[in-house]
């Protein structure tokens, strides 16, 4: 019998991944590293600023993707981004930035565990709406705290990061993105990757196979929110000023989601590529129209869902399965 033949055949063991998959990532970071030193001419300052916000967008998208890998499609990213921003605004007044930054992120991470715990059994649109509602609750609370605490609806001044030195801020953002990418790669190479993927593709089956779903879902929340909050710190420290309406806006939850989906879900490079393309597109459009430049996110999201299910990464790796980093 032919199947009996199969039974005796042995498998060629393939490595989980090869170092070659790291080359595009290396290229991305190489380019990002030399960018400030390029002869950018008279608009150098403006371009460096766009590059800075591109890095922040990439941090947010990649951190959102890490949570999505565990099947939790969140609309609460703005909440953790905002908690990072507000945490830094308040803590930065009483301690040096390098202490305020991780502490603000830690607080956001811990708050995310609360959200994670109560939404454990929710999925799909219920999960999306619950996370959206959570963001609004956080925003309303911050907005209604006494003005002396968090500035109320008017907002809050933020201590400038690194004395407002644009180039230093850029490299700090570069460092945070590099850290985020390393975390993402570390997850990809660890048991977390298998747990996340299993939960996403069949939660009950994962449990039958012994995956401690609660623990891994919460871990995804913590890691994702911690990193998102670091992005929030960078944003707040760059703009000197934050207010609840903009910081916790739905747009800040949708942008990372769109960026990841457009770039390529569940990959490290995809969200970073997506951020680069979308940020540049947004900026170009912003230069010609004052309002509504976020239209690119709506358009890109629709077109991606209808015609590009695996995003940019799907274009780059047409027809290949698995082994993506």
């Amino acid at each position: 019998m032919s199947r009996a033949m199969e039974t005796s055949r042995t498998v060629t063991r393939r490595p989980d991944f090869t170092a070659r998959a790291l080359v595009p990532l290396g290229l991305f970071f190489g380019l990002a590293l030399v960018f400030p030193f390029l002869p950018l001419g008279t608009r150098a300052e403006y371009l460096l600023q766009i590059a800075f916000f591109t890095l922040v967008a990439a941090i947010l998208a990649l951190s959102w993707d890490i949570l999505a890998r565990s099947g939790q499609v969140s609309l609460a990213h703005a909440a953790f981004y905002g908690l990072g921003a507000y945490g830094f605004a308040l803590l930065g007044k009483v301690m040096p930035w390098f202490a305020a930054m991780p502490l603000a992120a830690l607080i956001a991470g811990l708050v995310s565990l609360i959200l994670g715990a109560v939404t454990l059994r929710l999925s799909g649109m219920y999960f999306a709406i619950a996370t959206l509602a959570f963001t609004e609750v956080v925003r309303t609370i911050i907005q209604n705290l006494p003005e002396s605490v968090a500035g109320g609806a008017n907002g809050l001044l933020v201590p400038a990061l690194l004395g407002g030195n644009a180039r230093a801020q850029y490299f700090l953002a570069f460092g945070v993105l590099l850290f985020t990418a390393l975390v993402s790669l570390a997850i990809r190479r660890s048991r977390l990757h298998h747990a996340f993927a299993a939960i996403r593709q069949g939660e009950e089956t994962a449990r039958v196979l012994g995956v401690s779903v609660v623990r891994y879902k919460l871990a995804a929340f913590f890691i994702s929110s911690f990193l998102a909050a670091l992005g929030g710190v960078l944003f707040a420290g760059k703009t000197f000023f934050i207010n609840p309406l903009e910081t916790f806006s739905l747009a800040n939850s949708i942008a990372p989601l769109t960026t990841s989906i457009f770039g390529g879900l569940y990959t490290t490079l995809g969200p970073m590529l997506g951020a680069t393309v979308l940020r540049v597109a947004e900026e170009l459009l912003h230069n010609s129209v004052k309002n509504g430049y976020l239209v690119v996110y709506g358009l890109v999201l629709m077109l991606t869902i209808l015609w590009l299910p695996r995003g940019l990464m799907g274009l780059l790796r047409r027809g290949k399965h698995g082994g993506e980093l």
Partner: peptide
């Protein structure tokens, strides 16, 4: 399509319409 895709499609539509109006 998976529920996620449906949700995201209408999400995209919402952002599109809202920003077109803004524009």
């Amino acid at each position: 399509a998976p529920e996620l895709n449906q949700m995201l499609l209408t999400f995209g539509l919402g952002i599109l319409l809202q920003n077109l109006a803004l524009m």
